[in-house]
Simulated scan of single mutants.
Amino acid sequence: MANKKISIIGAGAVGASVAQVLAIKDVADIYIFDIVDGLAAGKALDIQEGAPHWGFDYKLRGFCTADEKEYENLKGSDVIVVTAGLARKPGMSRDDLLLKNIGIMKDVGEKIKKYSPESIIVAVTNPADIMAYALQKASGIEPSRILGLGGSLDSARFRTFLAEALDVSVEDVNAFVIGGHGDDMVPFIRYSSVSGIPIEHLLPKEKIDEIIKRTRFGGGEILNLYKTGTAFYAPSISIAVMVESIIKNKKRVIPCAAYLTGNHAKHYGIENMFIGVPIKIGASGVEEIYDLQFNEEDKAAWEKSVESVKKNSKLADDYFSGKIKS
């Protein structure tokens, strides 16, 4: 039986780190694609040469998409991770990247449609919820087989900061973030705990508010420290656990950008768009969406995030309709 296959489009810091983490997890063959000549092939070989120490037997290969024919190597991918796009620079919000990266997603989505329309897609490029939307429009792939990074990474940051404040193991912190993957994300306090003990019983409101703010701007904090690049270590493992849950059908429950329709759309107040909510991730992609109950404070924060996603989704619609250009 043929090995499972993961393709990663974009061999920058995030894409290469995802490839490394997935290689170490030893779950599938990994194909890396990038428009820069030699970059994907070089990183694939570099990771492969560490296999004797990391202990994996799957193969890595790299391809230069300056030659469009190389996209043929997407065929047969079980999962395609899309990290291609422009990176944020200091002073730039996730939303500043929007139109440029929508244009890139249009091109990538069309290639996926042509060469591997049966794949499950994980959108990583910022802002990931809008990029998932753009990839769906360009590829025509069933929305339940497309999910976006967001809550997986944001929740990891939230858990890290809570564990730090409480001086406890991060393994015992259960917390998550929903909403758009941007500055209006919603760290969900009422559902956050340490071994079942509510966070609100352990930290004063002022400290919780401080942690929420740090979580919302966690990517920007790292960007300002790096000066010339954006985060990639935490994003890579956050992406890898999503992909692993698909490949191994682990059915992990992780907040990610998912497409809302029907009763879920009515519940969350956003329809036919992608936004971060708790989902079950399995072999078929988004296998279940969970509806959360909001109090007044939660609902106000959620609705603010929804409006931001709706605004950016409208820009994507205008781009695809030809009303605006990147």
Rank of each mutant, 00 (worst) to 15 (best):
K43W: 12
H267Q: 05
L260D: 00
K207T: 13
A156Q: 10
G282Q: 02
D172S: 13
H53R: 09
P127D: 13
I121C: 08
S284K: 06
A13E: 15
N249M: 08
M105H: 08
D291R: 11
Y268F: 14
V309N: 00
I141R: 03
M242A: 01
R145L: 03
I141K: 10
K4D: 11
G109T: 10
A316G: 04
I212K: 04
A51N: 11
A19C: 12
G269A: 00
E244N: 02
I6P: 08
G269Y: 03
A128M: 12
M1I: 04
I102Q: 02
P127T: 14
G322T: 05
E200A: 07
L260V: 00
K310C: 01
V27T: 14
P90A: 08
A44H: 04
G15V: 11
I80W: 00
D78G: 08
S119I: 05
Q136W: 07
M1N: 06
K25E: 04
L223D: 15
L74E: 09
E210L: 05
N263H: 06
C256P: 01
D209T: 02
A11E: 12
P255G: 03
D37F: 07
F294A: 05
G179C: 02
R145I: 09
A134E: 00
S195W: 07
K205S: 09
V306W: 09
K43Y: 14
A175L: 06
S119N: 07
L97H: 08
S321A: 10
A138G: 10
A300Y: 05
P143A: 01
A28F: 09
L45Q: 14
A51L: 09
E288W: 02
S192F: 09
P187H: 02
I281M: 05
V168D: 08
H181Y: 15
M185C: 15
E303T: 08
G229R: 15
A123V: 09
Y31L: 10
A300M: 15
S313P: 02
S326E: 12
E210R: 03
N174H: 06
S193M: 04
P255R: 04
S321V: 07
Y233L: 15
E296R: 11
V124A: 12
A258N: 01
G12D: 13
E297T: 13
R216Y: 04
V108G: 12
D184T: 13
G322C: 08
S7I: 14
E118I: 05
Q48E: 15
D34T: 05
N312Q: 12
F320I: 04
V186R: 07
L135F: 07
L135E: 04
E297M: 07
K314S: 10
L166A: 05
G220L: 13
E206A: 14
R190Q: 06
P198W: 11
V14W: 07
S17C: 14
L45H: 11
K207Q: 14
I270P: 09
S17K: 12
D167P: 03
L135C: 03
N126P: 02
E303N: 14
N73Y: 14
D96I: 02
K251I: 03
D78I: 06
K111Q: 11
Y319I: 03
I208L: 01
A156T: 08
G219T: 09
E297G: 00
A265H: 01
